[in-house]
């Protein structure tokens, strides 16, 4: 059971909460102790919009333990509109599949369970193709 770890990461995972550097105003995700842009200490929370584009992707057929039930699934590098890149699964893909450059948006989904069916459910960000519709 890794309950404390999942609990500690909930803000980042549920809502894509990263940081904005108080020194250089660079947006940071995932959060870091030191700003990757200017080297200052970064501690101010910043909630990302969740909009981005696919930079690269891979379709996973051989999953590590804990993810086997979901194969095949797609993992992507998503370039967020605020700048940072994030590694995340893509979900709700249709027949069109994935293309590099495709616009995607963040959704909060079930990632896996911690251990067996008695374990904690782990939720976190994934990205899906932007849905056509009013916004």
């Amino acid at each position: 059971m890794e309950v404390p770890r999942h609990w500690r990461l909930k803000q980042q995972r549920y809502a894509l909460v990263g940081e904005v550097c108080p020194h250089c105003e660079g947006k940071i995700f995932p959060p870091r102790d030191v700003c990757p842009h200017c080297g200052g200490e970064a501690k101010t929370p910043y909630t990302f919009s969740g909009k981005g584009t696919v930079y690269s992707y891979t379709i996973m057929h051989d999953a590590p333990a804990g993810y086997d039930e979901n194969v095949p699934y797609t993992v992507a590098l998503v370039k967020l509109e605020e700048g940072p890149m994030v590694t995340a699964q893509l979900t709700d893909l249709d027949e069109q599949g994935v293309q590099i450059g495709m616009p995607v948006e963040m959704v909060t989904r079930r990632i896996r369970q911690d251990g067996d069916e008695r374990g904690l459910l782990v939720y976190g960000y994934k990205f899906r193709p932007m849905i056509a519709g009013a916004r």
């Binding site: 979900t91 989904r109 079930r110 459910l121």
Partner: peptide
């Protein structure tokens, strides 16, 4: 619902 969806995720959206 998809494999990664449940009442919590759908409620969030």
């Amino acid at each position: 619902a998809g494999l990664d969806e449940d009442v919590i995720t759908m409620s969030i959206e």
